[in-house]
Design a protein around this nucleic acid. Structure first.
Lengths: 197, 197
DNA sequence: GTTGACATCATACCTTCAGTATGTTGGATC
DNA sequence: GATCCAACATACTGAAGGTATGATGTCAAC
């Protein structure tokens, strides 16, 4: 039988960092807390990571790895028409990104802690690439110039980010989710304006 | 002759806070630095403000007051057709929001420092309301259900935020600005799909 | 004009926390 | 079994947020 994946202390630190950072935010969590939660001390953290920001970055990458896993699963499922992917993809995007971990770490603290440039470098291969992929179908159909894909995908990413935050803040998340998804459809289906039948 | 507006120490603290926070980010600026830059000490800061976050909030409100001033000036100018306002308004929005102060304080540090809820409450009456106003013309023309205005304005706000960040990070901001503005037109003009001639 | 009260700010201090430096241990290697 | 190194604990330092208290000026009232 194969040996267990050997959960290292580094993995334990990252797991606790994900939990604490997503629950209380980056600034409200001390390095000692993360270490103690993992049954270790600060020495272990600063052996495994350069500083507190580096620990946060590693935790973000772990979260993003999970997101990527779900994104790949969603894109593989297929089923929908290529041109509709930009519309139906919005719903999938929300389903994946609407978690406390993604929200607090990747969307709220991320830009401020990691800096915009590093933050964008993290998001591009996952969330933004997913949108860009869907936009590619519009290019194929002649509905969108290729040169606009990158910027437009990034901007749609921004609107999706605010969509998740709007749901999180709403008094009635259920209603807000419906409201936001309807607006999302309006926004994305507008891109199909000159669409052929 | 009327007396000068009496620049108070509070105003000086806010002015220096705006400068330092926008240059180095919230976390990298100490309360002592802000006080010293204003020719005062920490005691003055903690008399005028509850804590460092409260100082940041006051500085953000001052920045937003300037933004509001420009927004009002832009909306008064008019000249464009009502339905086109959602398209041309995007360019105006970028012109106003594309400053280091707005970018670092209102768009990057804001959500993490103030919390999403308080941050949104600050943005709603200014940047988001401006977009919602333009969307109102689409409602009048029967191109958009009234119920979607709030959510859609918020989401467009999100895409504009990422647009400004994309320009700021780009190696060639000039080219990025053109690229982003083109994508912005694609996005907004899509909302005019069923537009009457 | 003296006194007292309050507003405004400086100074001194406390505590937390990020980061560092050094000590300790267990296992691999020869 | 002596050595060496990876992995972590412990002890320490400095910076910074926040507080408590003292100093100063101003104004009102008598």
């Amino acid at each position: 039988m194969s040996t267990q994946p050997a959960l290292t202390n580094r993995d334990r630190l990252i797991a606790q960092a994900r939990r604490l950072f997503s629950e209380h935010g980056f600034a409200a969590v001390s390095v000692d807390e993360v270490a103690a939660a993992a049954g270790l001390t600060k020495g272990a953290v600063y052996y495994q990571f350069k500083d507190k920001t580096d620990l946060f970055r590693a935790a973000c990458e772990a979260v993003l790895a999970d997101v990527r896993w779900q994104v790949d699963a969603a894109t593989m499922s297929g089923g929908t028409h290529a041109l509709d992917e930009i519309v139906t993809g919005g719903d999938k995007w929300l389903d994946i990104y609407e978690t406390p971990e993604v929200r607090q770490m990747l969307l709220i603290d991320g830009p401020a802690v990691l800096g915009v440039e590093a933050w964008m470098a993290l998001q591009e291969p996952v969330g933004i690439a997913l949108i860009a992929h869907a936009l590619g179908h519009l290019v194929d159909a002649g509905l969108l110039p290729q040169a606009q894909v990158a910027a437009l995908a990034h901007m749609l990413f921004g609107s999706f980010v605010q969509a998740t935050l709007r749901i999180a803040v709403a008094a009635d998340p259920q209603a807000a989710s419906r409201e936001v998804r309807a607006a999302m459809r309006t926004l994305t289906s507008g891109l199909l304006a000159g669409r052929p039948a």
